[in-house]
């Protein structure tokens, strides 16, 4: 058996180019709420790009450089845009019950994305090396310690928090975003609640 060939065939059957990058979408995809997901994705890209600039010069650069401070500001405000878009996306998907017709795992990964974005932002605040980081570290440690995780995920350990913020968590987010979008493309866009799938060959999907 040729694995490569099998992969080719599976992809051709399950996720052909016309599904991965469709030039045609159902007519019901006709609302601004469909832009929230794309806006979240775009914010993530801008976050990674501005983050890479900040990281390239080291964690102390932006305190002493005007350009560094500007990139920090860009990163800081893009976080607000990212969460704003993501929360709108979340509630839009909720009120569209977009988990229907087999899309429950797309929803689950979406919620995971939200839940993992929170510590990503937290470790970002902790990586600033200023009063804000210091204050969030000493305040937040009590919450971590009460839940028994403070000894393993130590908000006061800069090296650990920085690693989580610039590598581990963004990597996890990036992978999950990729999976999320692939699943959206694989399923196609969910049908309106008032217009469920029609039974026919292959049966009605639940």
């Amino acid at each position: 058996m040729n694995w490569t060939k099998r992969a080719q065939e599976t992809l051709r059957r399950e996720l052909p180019y016309e599904d991965l990058l469709p030039a045609e979408l159902p007519a019901y995809v006709h609302s601004y709420v469909y832009y929230f997901g794309v806006a979240t994705l775009a914010s993530f890209v801008v976050l990674v790009a501005s983050g890479v600039v900040l990281v390239s010069f080291g964690p102390q650069w932006w305190h002493v450089s005007g350009i560094g401070h500007f990139f920090n500001s860009l990163h800081f405000w893009t976080v607000q845009i990212f969460f704003f878009a993501m929360v709108l996306h979340l509630w839009a998907q909720f009120f569209m019950a977009a988990w229907r017709d087999g899309r429950q795992w797309t929803w689950v990964i979406g919620v995971l994305l939200f839940l993992i974005s929170v510590p990503t932002a937290l470790t970002g605040f902790l990586s600033q090396q200023n009063f804000d980081s210091q204050w969030i570290a000493v305040q937040g440690k009590d919450a971590m310690n009460a839940l028994g995780v403070g000894g393993f995920f130590n908000l006061l350990n800069f090296g650990q928090m920085y690693s989580f913020h610039i590598v581990i968590l963004p990597l996890v987010l990036g992978i999950l975003i990729g999976l999320h979008v692939l699943m959206v493309r694989w399923h196609g866009v969910v049908r309106p609640i008032d217009d469920p799938p029609q039974p026919g060959k292959g049966g009605r999907r639940k």
């Binding site: 469709p22 030039a23 045609e24 159902p26 007519a27 995809v29 217009d195 799938p197 026919g200």
Partner: peptide, 11 residues
């Protein structure tokens, strides 16, 4: 099959 009965438009 999923899109049966739905009209498509360019995007």
């Amino acid at each position: 099959r999923y899109y049966r009965g739905i009209s498509m438009k360019p995007d």
